[in-house]
Computed example of a mutant assay.
Amino acid sequence: MKKVVVLCAVLLGVLSCSSDDNAPPPIVLQLGDLHEGGIIFYLDETGEHGLVCAMEDQHFEVYWGCETAAIDGADGKEIGAGAQNTLDIADRCKGTEFAAELCIDYESGGFDDWFMPSIDELKVLSLNKDLVDEALEKNSGKTIDDAEYWSSTEASLNTVYFQFMGANPDKYIQTLRDESKMNVRAIRAF
């Protein structure tokens, strides 16, 4: 009797597997695809998760955050740190229009979980700028300017990392956050 039960379970497993043969093939994501409100510029090793950039800049020549306020946190450089950095900035800088707030307030494609990229996220966006710009043009977006863009990563108490998009993506620079205005483009994770 036990052998029959095992055989039925195996047989049912085989039958249920055969119904999967009719399932649609999985979606394969690629850099430059329009996906979940933006253009994919980074995919993790699984190819199922990554980062998209917004279809347009959120502002040109805006301050990074509030003046002279010490920010606890906002120092993560790595991919995956931008969202927390942005929240740290917004938590400290209330009531003023600044880059991190513009990213948090941004809504597009039915998504409202946008943030300012960490310096490593911004660097990857810069490395893939040509591919992203081509996809933005194809999908009625606005290309990334050859200009300075804020990251959400503080370098020290008064300095912040930024990236000049379009030239030397391997090098990012620090600047005084209270004296400079730069562009900002939101990103989101999926």
Results as ranks from 00 to 15, higher is better:
21 D>R: 12
22 N>I: 08
25 P>G: 00
25 P>N: 05
26 P>S: 09
31 L>A: 02
32 G>K: 03
32 G>T: 04
34 L>I: 01
37 G>K: 06
37 G>P: 09
40 I>R: 04
41 F>Y: 15
45 E>W: 05
47 G>K: 03
47 G>T: 14
50 G>N: 03
51 L>P: 14
56 E>G: 00
63 Y>N: 11
65 G>C: 12
66 C>R: 05
71 I>N: 14
71 I>T: 13
71 I>Y: 07
73 G>E: 02
74 A>S: 11
75 D>S: 11
77 K>N: 10
79 I>L: 04
82 G>Y: 08
82 G>W: 05
82 G>Q: 12
83 A>S: 08
84 Q>G: 02
85 N>H: 04
86 T>K: 03
88 D>A: 07
88 D>R: 07
90 A>D: 10
94 K>C: 07
95 G>Y: 07
96 T>P: 02
98 F>K: 01
99 A>V: 13
102 L>R: 15
103 C>H: 02
106 Y>G: 00
108 S>K: 07
109 G>I: 03
110 G>H: 13
110 G>L: 14
110 G>T: 14
114 W>R: 04
117 P>R: 14
118 S>K: 11
121 E>N: 13
123 K>D: 05
125 L>D: 12
125 L>I: 12
125 L>Q: 15
128 N>W: 00
129 K>L: 13
129 K>Q: 13
131 L>Y: 00
132 V>M: 00
136 L>H: 09
137 E>R: 00
